[in-house]
Design a protein around this nucleic acid. Structure first.
Length: 800
DNA sequence: AGCACGCCGACT
DNA sequence: GTCGGCGTGCTC
């Protein structure tokens, strides 16, 4: 029996199956999806068993050395999915499989030197590195003193030393000491009356069914370790190690909720979903529901049905909206059947949540993008909430989109996939219109409240009227009004595309990074200038580097600056600021939000992170300070993003009894992406935007591929880019496919590397993946030893 | 990725 | 003559 193995070496040369002999004793143990340790060249590494076969075509086959899992960590489905994913994203199979297991299970290989003789037999210079009973790390010996390498090599040859490779997982299972009665029928009378505490413990253990950890017992019975030790010594109880889960939500109480009665509309949209659940049909639904229309309740009841049918559910939520409020709703309905996976958890916590899924201890997983790979085997429903969110696309290799993976899995399990959004992506909505997805509209809010009134303020007009501050008269008046009434306001500053750069007022010189073609950002806390791309940091200059003038000013407005301005114009206002700076510490996000929820501030000022999930009854005003900052980013989706964001932010106001109002400040108030927020008219926006996309030939009218080429030398980048572009032009169908470029990337240099890009727009190109593989293959050499990077992004979202 | 093999320059 | 630089190619 031989095993086909993908080894843990992420290079294109090793991106294929390797054959290993399965030792006789392990023939029933080793199955596809299990991780093993295999010899690879002179070392040992981890590998995934993909397949088993009777025999190999090769004659020199090494045996599998060790087995890392008892149960396969990748199901047959996930093995197939990984194969498909690596094909679709042009990445290594290994990288696809590594996506599917928690980081804690990835292994590192330790290289150690073992002493096979007495220390005295070694040359004096090496003796100090070896201590009896201790392991010696290769790196300790060699990195210390370069000359050691030769010495060690010789000693290995002579048989005095040996080099060993130790494959270790990064994470560990957490264990705790547990105790149980040695004999469950033990008589209490056997224990002397004077040993009151011992009796108490035995009595307690007799009553309890589950074993209890030593820690918990000590706390519960208010006693000490000695008592237990005594009982163990006498043989009444046994002590043992038991694996425990790290519970990120320990101590949090979840209020049990029951299904709410559905509105007529909700009833209408849930029926087709339940239908395809029951008949085991793979349908993709686009649930288009305005904010507050009760999408989540539809999800919950659909999941409930799936669980009743004995099947599992995967729910994806964008990282930033994976707030305690959201988790609460799922935990509240399904209790301990839910596993939660997001980046806020420690590596160990993620590991534990993941193993709950593998062991079938949960039936629902709620998580960010990578939760789509949850190792369930009987998936009944997959839900992607806020499906338009760009965070569902991974920007690193493998550059996959969770939506595509969801549909793969939905088709595998013949189950429904629900994409939910108030502002669907153009791609999804277009597919729904073409009946590829089934459109399910929810047009009214559950509580029958109207959507908040939106007023767009023309900031050019304000300027003409002599208002040079960042707050319009209207917004300022409204803010004052809310403070007087004791109601709350949210101020939203979209900083993407904007930053606080530094410019000389005399000569116009802008401080830029010396390694990247981008302006430096001023950081007030350290009074320094930082580059957002490479992390380069320099002191804030006092005079202009170019002309020596001391008229240096900060431009752009960060939240800090808005906050200062706010306290100047509204001195009585209590403001909570939420941005990367104030939420860096773990848990501070929740702390600030709950403080605001308790009414400890009048105004919540923040960036993107407050656009989602915020739901407090006293918020009656939402202000957007610079609506068009996103609109001018050179990206064909900028209008779509602007509309989505404005709608999202508007949804924060007046969700409960009090009526809400939204003020949007803009320098381009007539642009349809801003104008149409007033009427909350998605359909209209869709039509407008689609006609733009049609003219300029952008998705959903075409598919796109972005090829990014970078190298420290500009000439090299240009020659490679041109080669790629002309190759593509030769290979692709001229009539329906367009090759754009090569052109310099919007960010033409990052970390001293010049960047060029080529773009492919196509409708139907059967040979596309094959051709792209050829390009990858062709430049392998330059990529391995040279500094060349060629990255290919199918269906890109980021064009920098 | 690592590591060995192998072919050219500067040294005890 | 050798030591060691890193280009090339292989790992079941």
């Amino acid at each position: 029996m031989i095993a086909k193995v993908i080894v843990d070496v992420p290079t294109s040369q090793t991106d294929r199956l390797f054959d290993y002999a399965v030792p006789k004793e392990w023939e029933n143990v080793i199955q596809p999806g299990i991780r093993v340790v295999v010899p690879f060249g002179p070392r040992k590494i981890q590998g995934f068993v993909i397949d088993l076969e009777k025999e190999s075509t090769l004659n020199k086959i090494k045996p599998i050395e060790d087995v890392l899992d008892v149960v396969p960590v990748l199901t047959q489905e996930l093995l197939e999915l990984g194969e498909w994913l690596s094909e679709q994203t042009l990445s290594f199979k290994l990288s696809a499989y590594q996506l599917m297991i928690p980081a804690a299970m990835r292994t590192k290989v330790k290289k150690e030197i073992v002493l096979l003789t007495e220390r005295q037999n070694l040359p004096a210079s090496l003796q100090n590195y070896f201590e009896p009973g201790k392991k010696t790390l290769w790196s300790d010996v060699i990195l210390d003193q370069k000359a050691n390498l030769k010495l060690v090599q010789e000693l290995v040859r002579e048989g005095l030393l040996e080099v060993r490779y130790q494959v270790e997982e990064k994470g560990h299972k957490k264990t705790a000491r547990y105790i149980k009665l040695a004999d469950p029928n033990v008589q209490l009378e056997e224990i002397p009356t004077r040993a009151a505490k011992q009796r108490e413990i035995v009595d307690f253990l007799k009553e309890s069914i589950e074993p209890i950890s030593v820690q918990d017992l000590l706390k519960k019975l208010q006693t000490t370790r000695q008592v237990i030790t005594a009982l163990v010594k006498k043989g009444y109880i046994h002590e043992f190690e038991k694996e425990v889960y790290r519970d990120p939500l320990a101590g949090v109480q979840f209020e049990q909720t029951t299904p709410l009665p559905l509105t007529e509309q909700q009833q209408q949209v849930i029926e087709p979903i339940l239908d395809s659940l029951v008949t085991k049909q793979h349908d993709t639904f686009l649930l288009h529901g305005v904010t507050g229309s009760g999408k989540t309740e539809v999800y919950l009841q659909a999941i409930d049905k799936a669980l009743q049918l004995g099947r599992e559910a995967i729910v994806l939520v964008p990282e930033i909206s994976l707030t305690p409020q959201m988790v609460q709703r799922f935990k509240g309905r399904f209790g301990s059947k839910v596993a939660v996976l997001h980046s806020g958890l420690s590596m160990g916590e993620k590991y534990d949540e993941w193993r709950k899924i593998l062991r079938k201890e949960v039936e629902v997983v709620v998580g960010a993008r990578s939760a789509i790979f949850a190792p369930f085997t009987n998936v009944g429903i997959i839900i992607i909430d806020e499906e338009h969110e760009t965070s569902y696309k991974q920007e690193e290799n493998p550059k996959y989109h969770a939506r595509d993976v969801a549909i793969f899995r939905g088709s595998y399990h013949q189950c429904p996939v629900i994409l939910g959004s108030a502002t669907p992506s153009l791609e999804s909505y277009a597919r729904a219109k073409k009946q590829v997805y089934q459109l399910l509209p929810l047009t009214t809010r559950v509580n029958q409240r109207a959507m908040p009134a939106v007023e767009v303020v023309d900031m050019r007009e304000e300027l003409r009227n002599g208002n040079r501050s960042m707050f319009s008269y209207t917004l300022l008046e409204m803010l004052k009004d809310r403070i007087e009434k004791g109601e709350q306001s949210v101020l939203f500053l979209n900083r993407r595309g904007y930053s606080t750069f530094v410019m000389c007022r005399d000569c116009g010189y802008v401080a830029t990074c010396e390694h990247c073609d981008i302006s430096l950002t001023y950081h007030r806390t350290q009074h320094s200038l930082k580059c957002h791309y490479c992390g380069h940091e320099e002191k804030m200059p006092n005079t202009c580097e170019s002309c020596g003038s001391d008229h240096i000013r900060f431009f752009g407005s960060g939240t800090q600056k808005v906050e200062e301005e706010l306290t100047r114009v509204l001195p009585t206002a209590r403001v909570i600021r939420m941005d990367i700076d104030t939420t860096r510490r773990k848990g501070s996000h929740e702390r600030l939000l709950s403080a605001f929820g308790r009414g400890e501030a009048d105004i919540l000022l923040g960036t993107q992170m407050i656009a989602k999930g915020l739901d407090f009854p006293k918020i009656t005003l939402v202000g957007v300070l610079a609506a068009d900052s996103m609109l001018h980013i050179p990206d064909f989706r900028s209008a779509e993003r602007t509309f989505q964001l404005m709608e999202q932010v508007s949804g924060r106001a007046g969700r409960h009894d009090l009526e809400g109002k939204v003020i949007i400040q803009s320098y381009t108030p007539d642009h349809y992406s801003i104008e149409l927020v007033k009427s909350h008219d998605y359909e209209h926006f869709f039509k407008m935007e689609m006609s733009q996309r049609k003219v300029a030939l952008y998705p959903p009218y075409v598919f796109m591929v972005l090829i990014n080429i970078s190298h420290p030398e500009l000439t090299k980048v240009i020659t490679v880019s041109e080669k790629i572009a002309s190759f593509l032009k030769r290979e692709m169908q001229e009539s329906t496919t367009t090759i754009l470029g090569p052109v310099a990337s919007p960010l033409a240099r990052i970390k001293d590397r010049y960047r060029y890009q080529c773009m492919i727009k196509y409708r139907n190109e059967p040979r596309l993946l094959e051709t792209l593989r050829e390009i990858q293959q062709h430049f392998i050499r330059d990529m391995n030893q040279g500094q060349l990077q060629v990255s290919i992004d199918m269906h890109p979202y980021m064009f920098t």
